[in-house]
Simulated assay, not measured.
Amino acid sequence: MRIIRRKSELRDLTKSWHRAGETIGVVLTMGALHDGHLSLVKAARSRADRVIVTIFVNPRQFNNPEDLAKYPKTEDNDARMLGPLDIDVLYVPEAEEIYPTGFSTTISVSGVSDGLCGDDRPGHFDGVATVVTKLLLQTDADCTFFGEKDYQQLQVVRRVVADLDLKTEIVACPTVREDDGLAMSSRNLRLGAAAREMAPVIGRVLESAASTIRQGGNVAQALTTASQALMAAGFDAVDYFELRSDPDLQPMAAASRPGRLFVAAWLNGVRLIDNLPVQVELRASADARKTVEPV
């Protein structure tokens, strides 16, 4: 594994790979790697001839300076974790490689960025869209891999690639969970022992609400009950508990088409997010099951 910090060096390498007819798979991260990230790396290794993992803590997607300051920086440990996975490059650019002096361009995506984390984290998805575009261009990625845990982010990235005619294929990978059901996240490192023990409640409440809706239960009541359950369990606040259509992420009052249930809640100063697919189980009516006998 080669560690590269300058885009000029990386571009020389990726050009040689493409000249040789090799494909490049890229996993974009902010470091503090966990098994969820590693599952994306393994997926990239299975799909591409060459694999690049990036680590860049992007200041433009943090609307809260304190959140940025607290974000764990664990490059040495990250490199050790990646060592056995046979990647080709760990790209760790300095800030000036991404945002050089005079940088003044922002990519903004409407529609799928509205609501959910888009409301609670102003400017967040502009920062995501901008840095993802930069890194996909710098790495010359043929395919890139995103986890479904950050599902709104995944849809924002898909929109950017489609709208800007980028060549990169976006590959979605299932959410990876701890044994107790908590969705893996770098932010989980900031939970204290007591909060970490409580955190899996968010997944159980999400699954319960999704099950109720899948079986035709009242959506509004299911969402209210779920939010109340989180607060009763000791969560500090619930930013949202919503049903949205998939893939355009429009609010849904009823599960009349494929959708996803989304939640964001605070626990011990840490914001946890999760989501699950929801589609009502369709049952054929008695009339539809009747057969017509020939006359």
Rank of each mutant, 00 (worst) to 15 (best):
M1D: 03
R6P: 00
K7W: 14
V26W: 06
V27K: 00
L28K: 01
L28T: 14
G31F: 09
L33D: 09
H34M: 01
G36C: 09
H37M: 03
L40I: 08
L40S: 06
A44V: 09
R45I: 03
R47E: 12
A48Y: 04
D49M: 04
R50Y: 08
V51E: 03
V57R: 03
N58Y: 05
F62I: 10
P65W: 10
P65E: 12
E66K: 13
K70R: 15
E75N: 01
D76I: 05
D78A: 05
R80S: 03
M81S: 06
L82P: 13
P84Y: 06
D86K: 12
D88V: 00
Y91S: 06
V92D: 02
A95V: 14
I98R: 00
Y99T: 02
G102L: 09
T105I: 12
S108G: 00
S110R: 15
S113I: 14
S113N: 11
D114L: 14
R121F: 14
R121W: 11
G123Y: 15
H124N: 11
G127D: 13
A129Q: 08
T130W: 07
V131L: 02
T133W: 04
T133K: 00
A141S: 13
D142H: 15
D142F: 10
T144I: 02
F146A: 01
G147P: 07
G147V: 08
K149S: 02
Q155G: 00
R158Q: 10
V161F: 01
V161S: 02
V161D: 03
D163L: 13
D165C: 03
K167H: 10
E169C: 04
I170L: 07
A172R: 03
C173Y: 01
P174V: 07
V176Q: 07
D180F: 11
D180A: 05
L182R: 06
A183R: 02
S185Q: 12
S186M: 08
S186L: 01
S186I: 02
S186T: 02
N188G: 04
A193C: 01
M198K: 15
V201N: 01
V201G: 00
V201F: 04
I202D: 05
G203E: 09
G203S: 14
S208N: 09
S211W: 14
T212F: 08
G216V: 10
V219G: 00
L223H: 04
L223F: 07
T224D: 15
T224M: 06
T224W: 07
S227W: 00
M231P: 00
M231T: 01
A233T: 11
D236W: 06
D236E: 14
F241A: 01
E242N: 05
R244V: 08
D246C: 07
A254N: 00
A254H: 05
S256Q: 08
P258H: 09
R260H: 10
F262L: 15
V263P: 05
V263L: 03
V263T: 09
A264N: 09
A265Y: 02
G269E: 14
N275I: 00
N275P: 05
N275V: 01
L276T: 12
V278K: 04
A284N: 05
S285Y: 02
D287F: 07
V292D: 03
